[in-house]
Structures are given as C-alpha cells and as structure tokens.
C-alpha cells in the first residue's frame, strides 16, 4: 500500500481485498470482552477535522483507540484555525508534536493531497472526506458491508442514487467498486451528475424504476443542501417522488438486495422511514463496519515499519518454521 490513503483509486484490487480481509479479523474484536489490540501502541494519530462530522470522526477515534494508539482530536472550531492559522502552519504544528498519522477532513477538495505531497509532514495522511472529491474509507466500509452480505463483488450491480454531484462518497465508491469488479450505475437527475462523469467507470441513468429491479445493492445518497448554491430540482417533493426510495420501490427489489446509506439520512427525502428501518437496510451495520475498516486501514498503514506489501502473493507458501 502507499503511505497515504487519499483516493479510492490509490488501491489496487489486491490492496483493497487485503483491507477487507483485515477488516474481517478486526470485526471479530467487537464480540470480545476486551475490545483492544496492542498493534499501534505508542503511535499518535491526529484527527484533523475542518468540517463537521460525527460518524466518521467517532469511527476513526474508536478505531485508533482500539488499536491502542494515542488519538488526538482536533476540530477547527475552538482551535487557532478560527484565528486564521493556515493549513500549512497547522500541519507544521502536528509534525512538531510527532503525529504518525493525520486523518483529515476538509471542505476543500484536494486538501489531504496538499498535506501529503507538501513535505510539511512526514506522517501518513488518511483522507476522511475532502469537499466533493473523495471519501475512501467510506467506500471501503461500503464495499466491506456488501462483501459480507453478497460475497465476491465481481459482476454485482450497484445502484448509487441521488446527489452524485456533491457526493465524495459516490466518487470513491464508483472507483473502488469498479476495482473490485462490480458494475456501478449512478442514478440521478441530470442536474446532479458531475461534469466529466462519462470518464468514470460507471453507467448513468435518470430513471430509478428501470435500474433498481436488477440491482444487488441500492445505495441512497443525501441531498447536500448545504453545498447547493443553485436550484438543481424544482421541489423537494418532486425529487423525492422521482429519486426517493419508498416502500413501493423497495417491493420491486430482488430478495437478496440490500439498501445502504452513508448517513446522515434525511428521512422522507431520499429514503422513507419504513425503508430505512426495514430488514433490507444495513445502514446501522455500515457504522459498525466503519470502525473495523478504519482499524484495518490504520493497522496496514502504521502497524509495521512501513505500509503492508501485497506484491508477494505466495506469502504463506513457505511459512512455518518455529514458535
């Protein structure tokens, strides 16, 4: 693996599968009386959150702590950032404190990349969401959730529905799921598809009812009103009728199809309460899996002298010499 996790596209198929299988081992920890592993003892992880987040920050915090790392939470509010400190000076401060990994969420697309490539810091940078660009650990936890329910993702059909334009989750998922062999269809009103989507490894559709009966996974996205500075659809009610997942549409799904949502949900907008609370919904499980997947990522980046290697597939072949 590379030293940083900035984009879902950074991961090869082998690396992505290594994260998933490592996450599977990490997940079993949740059932144990002592939810702690010693792998990152003495390492320092800084959660650098310039944008609001509950689930991702708590998830990274729990992941770091369960691996015995020292976790420092740094939120933009209440820090010197509100006094006008730049990203660079913040980074230099973190470097001086000896951070081994910086988990960064930023409103500007590309901020984690800047942090990683600037030589301001030597630590690993993990992108926890940058603007409307990428959110690779969310894609990994989504893929992990699908993998647990459906087995191999080869040839599986995944429909990602809603505000693709403002969604970093959609982009990361499209890239990662393509790497893992799934077929992704983005379903969205024309106004909410990003420019250049034709270069993504996906199909697109404007018609939800035509796509979902064939889908193995339906992933609903939140309409990100806070990032919308123009009128993208006439009314919320119209959006909801054309692109919302309700009981009627759920009835047209295949029996094994799961319904996902990266959260936070707006019930009644993109998903109705009866769907969100149904047996098909794995939304709560996604949160549980998020901790396991982030543990896997942190372990594989920081657990050894350098990030895990996947070049040698014959790894266990000649193993077995002593105790």
């Amino acid at each position: 693996m590379k030293r940083h996790l900035l984009s879902a596209a950074d991961l090869t198929r082998d690396e992505a599968e290594l994260v998933l299988s490592t996450a599977e081992e990490m997940r079993s920890l949740a059932d144990r009386p002592i939810k702690k592993l010693p792998a990152l003892r003495g390492r320092t992880i800084v959660n650098l959150f310039f944008e609001d987040s509950t689930r991702t920050r708590i998830s990274f915090e729990a992941a770091g702590k369960r691996l015995s790392a020292d976790v420092i939470n740094f939120a933009a509010k209440g820090s010197s950032l509100s006094k006008g400190e730049s990203l660079k000076d913040t980074a230099l401060t973190l470097e001086a404190m000896g951070a081994d990994a910086v988990v960064v969420r930023h409103g500007a697309s590309g901020a984690p990349h800047r942090l990683a490539s600037s030589n301001w810091i030597r630590s690993s940078v993990v992108n926890a969401g940058d603007g409307t660009h990428e959110h690779p650990t969310q894609a990994l936890l989504d893929a992990f959730t699908m993998w647990r329910h459906l087995g191999s993702l080869d040839g599986r059909r995944v429909a990602i529905v809603g505000d693709v334009l403002h969604s970093r989750v959609a982009r990361s998922n499209a890239l990662l799921l393509h790497t893992l062999g799934a077929q992704v269809t983005l379903v969205s009103p024309p106004t909410l598809l990003p420019v250049g989507v034709e270069t993504w490894p996906v199909e697109t559709s404007y018609d939800l009812d035509a796509v979902i009966p064939k889908a193995d996974v339906v992933m609903m996205l939140r309409v990100q009103q806070e990032r919308m500075h123009a009128a993208f659809f006439p009314t919320a009610r119209e959006y909801s009728r054309r692109y919302g997942l309700d009981g009627r549409r759920m009835a047209s799904l295949q029996d094994h199809t799961i319904v996902m949502h990266p959260g936070p949900m707006v019930r009644g907008m993109e998903i109705t309460a009866d769907v969100a609370d149904s047996d098909r919904s794995v939304i709560v499980e996604q949160v549980t899996n998020g901790v396991a997947v982030r543990m896997a990522v942190l372990y594989l980046l920081l657990g050894g002298s350098q990030p895990a290697e996947t070049e040698q597939p014959a790894e266990t072949d000649t193993e077995g010499a002593d105790a």
Binding site: S28, L300, G304
Partner: peptide
Amino acid sequence: MYRDDLRLKPARTLLPTE
C-alpha cells in the same frame, strides 16, 4: 499484533482468530 517484532517489518497480514 502481539508480536514483539511487529515494528521491524512492513505491516503483516492478519490470520484468522476463531
């Protein structure tokens, strides 16, 4: 993850605990 030489090599693949 409990090995004393964990830090001496690249991060290692975990094996199943059941």
